[in-house]
Design a protein around this nucleic acid. Structure first.
Length: 111
DNA sequence: TAACTGACTCGGC
DNA sequence: AGCCGAGCCAGTT
């Protein structure tokens, strides 16, 4: 893992590595960074990601259930689902279909 | 400066 | 099987 600097910068870095058509969870990123249970911070970092450069695909990060909990922070909120569907991910009722199938684990993919 | 909040997760009841 | 409480860390007020 590369420690770019502050916590949220690391989160941004990992989030940017998420391949297209794949998704991951806050907890997975938190665990990868070694912060363990601080999944909340990942979400908070995502909030800052909107102003980050280069932009972070925050729409590929959802909660452990595959639920688009963060969509409310998008403008409009429906954009998150739209982006995911555009990448071939089926989303229904704010929930990713076959979430585990599209799941991208930084611990496994990045080592 | 101290306190609160938050796009989460886990464990217990 | 669903609801409730606790833990986590950093940024914001």
């Amino acid at each position: 893992m590369k420690r770019a600097g502050s916590f949220f910068e690391d989160v941004h870095d990992v989030a940017r590595l998420i391949p297209e058509g794949r998704v991951t969870s806050y907890g997975a990123i938190a665990k990868y960074l070694g912060t363990g249970m601080s999944a909340r911070m990942v979400g908070w970092a995502m909030n800052a990601s909107f102003n980050a450069e280069p932009p972070v695909p925050a729409h590929r990060v959802v909660n452990r259930q595959g639920l688009l909990t963060g969509k409310i922070h998008f403008s409009p909120p429906e954009m998150m689902q739209a982006l995911l569907e555009r990448e071939g991910i089926r989303v229904e009722n704010d929930c990713i279909i076959d979430f585990q199938k599209h799941f991208w684990d930084p611990m496994v993919e990045l080592g």
